[in-house]
Amino acid sequence: MYFSLNSPKMFFFFVLIFKTLISISSNSWLGCWIGLKINLLKFIPLISNSNNLMSSEASLKYFLTQSIASINFLMSILLKLILFKNFEMNFFMSIMINSSMLMKMGSTPFHFWFPNIAKGLSWFNNFMLMTWQKIIPLIILSYYMNNNFIYIIIIMNVIVGAMGGLNQTSLRKMMTLFSNNNLGWMLSAMMISENLWFFFFFMYSFMISIICFTFNMMNMFFINQLFFNNMNSMIKINLLINFFFLGGLPPFIGFFPKWIIINFLINEQFYLMIFIMIMMSLIILFFYIWIIYFSFMFNYLKIKWFKSYFKNKNFSFINISFFFSIFGMIISTFFFY
């Protein structure tokens, strides 16, 4: 286990959780900034490891990028308080605040640090980086959002997230770039409704946790390990279902929040943005299918269909996710048809 016999990391983890809750419940911009800084200082000990040079390099890069974003955010709120009364909306200041939060999330066009840091982290730290560390910037972004600027960011996220993952061999880099694609959907949900983006974020976190836990249990970090690893075929079927779940292929339940977002965007007549988002999702699904197809084909002569893999307790969470995906297919089919 990640926290077994390691009380300092357990302490930093729980302080990280509580400081996030304190930051999002703050009623002042200075309180949000303090929460961001404490959140940063508590996450760095979790990702740093003296025995791993890549982890130490990742923690240093993460500290520098997050510090630059925090300085930009602090300068923006101070200029707003000095130059403008009642904190009214200003185009330039709103872009500065939005940009600092997008940099903290690793959103496009400030995403270049994100894959480089992810390749030096464990799967658990990658899961935290792709989910929990985005909560505070997303909520601050919802307080002071420039819609015209966010439109451009959404389109850039879905395009870069889909195209950038096509030439990657590292699974950790690939998952971070595909999380940028989901971030584009999340920002579009934020423009529609607060409850909708909460729901999408919950579904996104659940989907990412399944994939990260699966790769962590099988100790996989590169695509060629999926091709040549002598794994059970039932695990590959599970991966196929969960990739479809993550990619949002109908009628899997991962498509359900995207279907709601598409309906709202059609009502608002954002046809071009909907077209780009759907086409980029199809590219991601093509890549998922390509990976699983070759994973099956490289081992097609080995008969492993009747292996007793369900007896392994380590894969109980994966089994639950498999049945949840099937159950989601039934629910979404009932709603759609």
Rank of each mutant, 00 (worst) to 15 (best):
S107Y: 00
L121M: 07
F198N: 04
P137S: 03
L166T: 08
N125Y: 02
W185A: 11
M163T: 09
N148Q: 10
L138D: 05
N182T: 10
M191L: 15
M218R: 10
N181M: 12
N182K: 12
A118N: 13
N216M: 03
T131I: 07
S142E: 12
M207A: 15
M101R: 01
I150N: 05
I155E: 02
F114P: 01
F200R: 11
M156K: 04
I139T: 13
M186V: 08
L129I: 13
W132V: 10
N157S: 15
F198I: 15
M130E: 03
F124G: 03
G106S: 02
I139N: 09
T131E: 04
M174K: 10
I153W: 00
Y204V: 04
H111W: 07
K134P: 12
N126Y: 04
L196C: 05
S122C: 06
Q168P: 04
Q225T: 08
M130Y: 04
H111D: 01
N126V: 12
F221R: 04
I211D: 01
V160S: 07
F213Y: 14
S170V: 04
N148P: 06
M203C: 12
F227W: 11
M207P: 01
L141C: 06
N148S: 13
F114Y: 10
S179W: 01
W113Q: 00
A162I: 03
G165A: 08
M207Y: 03
I153A: 02
M101A: 09
N116C: 07
N182I: 08
I139K: 13
Y143F: 14
L138M: 14
W132G: 02
N180A: 13
I139E: 05
E194L: 10
Q225G: 06
F200A: 09
L171V: 08
M217H: 10
N219K: 14
G161H: 07
I139V: 12
I152P: 03
P115L: 01
H111Y: 14
F112S: 13
L187K: 02
W132D: 03
I159P: 05
L121S: 00
S193I: 06
M220H: 04
G164W: 02
G106D: 00
T131L: 02
T214F: 15
W185N: 08
L196N: 08
F222K: 13
P109I: 09
F200W: 05
I150F: 08
F124S: 07
L166K: 09
S179D: 01
L177P: 02
N216W: 00
I211W: 01
W113D: 00
P109K: 12
E194D: 13
E194V: 11
I135V: 15
F201L: 14
A189R: 06
M218D: 06
N182H: 15
K173I: 00
G161W: 02
L138R: 07
L171T: 02
K134W: 03
M220L: 15
E194I: 10
Y144F: 15
F206R: 02
R172Y: 05
F124Y: 14
I135Q: 03
L129P: 05
F124I: 13
N146P: 06
N147E: 14
L141H: 10
G106V: 11
N182W: 07
S188N: 11
M191G: 11
L183V: 12
W123N: 08
F114R: 00
L183P: 00
Q133F: 03
I210S: 11
N157K: 05
I208L: 14
V160H: 04
N224F: 13
N157T: 09
A118W: 02
S205P: 03
N182G: 11
F222M: 14
S107G: 15
I223R: 10
M101T: 13
I152M: 13
